[in-house]
């Protein structure tokens, strides 16, 4: 066998192993009522055949659509906020100033904190007797029960996400900003462009690709949001902060309705693939 093929073989095997087998298994299970508690090993899941019942259940799954809506809400709030904050910070870091390297090293720290640990940090911060309320109480005594209020819990979760992932935007966008040719910015200045005009006509168009990449990466990750959120709220109170991943986790480990989970997983995979194809085509243009 050729060396090139031999070199790529292990990776190909792993990719097949994680895509083809699971897909086939999922397809099989998704057509049954099988669960780990069924008393039969999974190869015998056909004994619990229920044809397409799992799929027809999806449209009526209110908890699913609520979770999806919440996931999208987190996405459309957090990603733009992170983008704007990251861009603002990036613009501050284009010019040199004393202590820049140290400030940079500190500012990118949050994204390297283990997400579960970050979740725990914010769990502590948002305790009713915790530092957030303590800081807010300069305006008067505050005892907000952040994590047990449905909407405030979601806010707290988003704050944690923004804290952890703004540095990523900052890091990527700064790399892009630094790459904008200085001479072009100076030329624009000498032609009378204001800072805002320079930003709009030179910086932004030059950063288009980078901005797209940064937004895409963050949007994908935000869609999968689990660790911080689950540690902070466990999806609660009730189901108030349940996102797609949390919902999946719960019906997998608590409800154990694996046939339905498999159907749902396939549904999500197919939807995401279509969305990705669509997005790629638009990006290519």
């Amino acid at each position: 066998m050729k060396l090139g093929l031999r070199l790529t073989l292990p990776a190909q095997v792993l990719v097949l192993f994680i895509s083809v087998f699971p897909l086939l298994m999922q397809l099989y299970i998704s057509l049954t009522d099988w669960s780990p508690l069924s008393g039969a090993p999974w190869p015998r899941a056909w004994e619990f055949w229920n044809s397409f019942a799992n799929y027809t259940d999806i449209p009526g799954d209110r908890r699913l659509w609520a979770a999806l809506g919440r996931t999208l809400l987190v996405m459309v709030i957090c990603v733009p906020v992170e983008f704007l904050l990251g861009l603002g910070l990036g613009l501050l870091f284009v010019e040199d100033f004393p202590g820049k390297k140290l400030a940079y090293s500190i500012l990118i720290m949050p994204m390297m904190v283990v997400p579960a640990v970050a979740g725990y940090m914010f769990f502590m911060l948002f305790q009713s007797g915790g530092p957030v309320n303590d800081l807010l109480s300069v305006f008067g005594p505050v005892t907000i029960a952040w994590l047990s209020d449905p909407w405030l819990a979601l806010v707290a979760v988003m704050v944690a996400d923004i804290w952890q992932w703004t540095p990523l935007m900052f890091l990527i966008l700064l790399a892009g900003l630094v790459g904008v040719p200085q001479d072009q910015l100076r030329a624009a200045t000498l032609l009378g462009a204001s800072p805002w005009q320079r930003f709009r006509t030179i910086t932004l168009p030059r950063m288009k690709v980078i901005i797209t990449i940064a937004l895409a990466i963050r949007a994908i990750e935000a869609f999968k949001i689990f660790d911080t959120l689950y540690i902070m709220t466990g999806g609660g109170p009730g189901v108030a902060t349940e996102t797609i991943s949390v919902y999946f986790y719960k019906i997998t480990t608590n409800d154990l309705i694996w046939g339905y989970v498999a159907a749902l997983a396939l549904f999500i995979l197919v939807s995401l693939s279509i969305a990705a194809q669509f997005a790629m085509k638009r990006m290519a243009r």
């Binding site: 093929l5 299970i29 989970v261």
Partner: peptide, 22 residues
């Protein structure tokens, strides 16, 4: 292995939750 770049990006796209049952 010209298929790998895209296949691996896709692998990253999906929530791990969606393949964990199998």
């Amino acid at each position: 292995g010209a298929n790998l770049p895209l296949a691996l990006i896709q692998l990253r796209l999906f929530p791990p939750m969606a393949v964990m049952i199998p």
